[in-house]
Simulated assay, not measured.
Amino acid sequence: MIGLARLPLGVLYIVAEGLYGLMAYVIRYRQKVVLENLRNSFPEKTEPQIQQIRKDFYRHFSQVMVEILKLAAMSDAELRRRVTIRNPELLAEPFKAGRTVLALGSHAGNWEWILPSGALEFPGKAYGVYKPLSNPFFEDFLYQLRTRSGAHLIPMRDTLRDLVKRRTEGRAMSMLTDQAAGPEDKPYWTTFLNQETSFYSSADRLAGQFNCPVVYVNIQRVKRGYYELVILPLHDGNTPLDKDAFALTEAFARHLERDIQAAPANYLWTHRRWKHKRV
């Protein structure tokens, strides 16, 4: 893999075109899931429009795959050149006051470039909450990629303990909040992309308990190989929160819904996002 990662990104995009053809037309990787997700999310679109989004998604996904691989050999200077951060002061100001900021992200754009880019912008202050993989090879590979710029990783089960331990340290705690939350996760339910959808609600609980500022993070593709990491405010960390209202999770859902509707092909449609049903 390291040998491939050393190839210029332009060459890797040629490889991505081969991956695109393989996934979209040969093995049709999770095509049933992709089409079901798209049809349910965009009932107003015609079938030709759905099929076009499907094709665009597979091309985007193939490019993201080689971009993630490239991280293994990409210089810090190149990563800085390829990712522009908008509104970094929304993190910098709380950091000066020794506050932990909850940064809520999703599987849109190139999500694996978020944490390394944040670590370059804010050295020593970028932490990511993650779920360790069962496969040792991929667990080690992704761990190395995600920490390559000095970021720190926190296993999901240790989130609360880590907040208690480092509650006075100025830093960002990145959380991918768009994953399907099961009944055991005490999910927040809302209508999202025309469907009843469960969301992890830990951001509301943690922000209320530890008075954390909260931001929404989206990494938007500007052109092939270049992204803009957009940071938007959700909560100042001072205003009291109603623990039963889940205002932050609802705000996250609305921001994400807007961004997906603006660029539907750039979301991860292979995920069984709506596998849980409300009871």
Rank of each mutant, 00 (worst) to 15 (best):
P264G: 07
L206D: 00
T270G: 03
R148S: 15
N87C: 05
D162H: 00
E139F: 07
D140E: 14
Q220A: 15
D204I: 00
Q63E: 14
G170F: 05
M173P: 01
T100H: 02
A253K: 01
A72K: 15
N266M: 11
V215D: 04
V101K: 04
N218I: 14
L19T: 00
H152D: 11
S75T: 15
T177H: 12
T159N: 02
T191P: 01
E36R: 08
A92T: 08
N87L: 03
A180W: 08
V33R: 05
E250W: 01
A108L: 15
I27R: 04
N40R: 15
I2H: 14
A180R: 12
A262H: 07
L4G: 11
L193Q: 06
Y226I: 00
E184P: 02
C212K: 02
F42N: 10
A253H: 04
I219H: 08
K70C: 08
S117N: 12
F192I: 13
A207H: 02
A97I: 01
H152P: 00
L91Y: 06
H152S: 14
N135G: 11
D158F: 05
D178G: 11
F122N: 10
K45H: 13
M175W: 04
R6C: 14
L19N: 03
R254K: 14
A180F: 10
L115D: 09
L115A: 10
G3D: 13
R258I: 02
